[in-house]
Design a protein around this nucleic acid. Sequence first.
DNA 1: CCTATGTCGATGCAGTTGCATCTATATTGA
DNA 2: TCAATATAGATGCAACTGCATCGACATAGG
Lengths: 129, 129
Amino acid sequence: MLMRTSRGLLEDVEAALKAAGLPPLAWYDVLLELEKAGNEGMRPFELKNRLLLPQYGTSRLLDRMVTAGLVDRQDCEDDGRGQIVSISDSGRETRASMWPVYGKVLVTRIGAKLTPEEAIQLARLLSKI
Amino acid sequence: MLMRTSRGLLEDVEAALKAAGLPPLAWYDVLLELEKAGNEGMRPFELKNRLLLPQYGTSRLLDRMVTAGLVDRQDCEDDGRGQIVSISDSGRETRASMWPVYGKVLVTRIGAKLTPEEAIQLARLLSKI
DNA sequence: CCTATGTCGATGCAGTTGCATCTATATTGA
DNA sequence: TCAATATAGATGCAACTGCATCGACATAGG
């Protein structure tokens, strides 16, 4: 049930984003992390750890986002192997415009079907897993 | 949180199946449906409706499963456009060998972390969505 | 200092997915 | 009956994913 539920939800969110001409959900997660990281940005491997993405996935996702101008990438001074990625102004705007679309699907798919107490309880149960 | 939880669970299941030299989880769902459908099998579009898969995804998934010998495909007599797919003996065996691997991950990831009452409650909440 | 090993990130390749479109057959209705 | 439309399933193409591996730099141990 968990699988079916979340897959359906995911598809709805992706479809809503696409219909609004916005990037996929994974980009939202990245933008949110980078926004939280502030101006100093963060290392790709840290992003990978936070979002539990595979290393190669992170590398290529960042590639695309840099190309799209949502993320800035610069060489890391402390570590010659590494780099620092940070969100651009355009990235901030994009994230902001994604949120209402994302949120609306969640509200209509979850908020409308569960009472607030149930939603809290669901969150509590899921967090234990 | 729902997304993160289910994605992690999914990855664990896929990894366990792969480690056991077994096909991916989607194949399990198909095999289970076909096994329930019995000897008459079922139409691909019906499978697509039940599993909520895209049409092209169903077509290609069945291609691979037929190639792997887990599914039999024959032309449909009633409808010249259509076909009938059904599970083969090998498919039944494969599904049977997948179940314990699948189940074990669920038990260790869910059963071990939630009490039976919590699990029931979780299922109830998810079913409302 | 130098070699061995570990970590960071990139990439070639094969397999998979999404999208749009196609062919073939079925159904509807004038 | 025949044209218009709808449905079943396949497929070319571009994008994306997983896997294995690579090259570059970092760090530890002798």
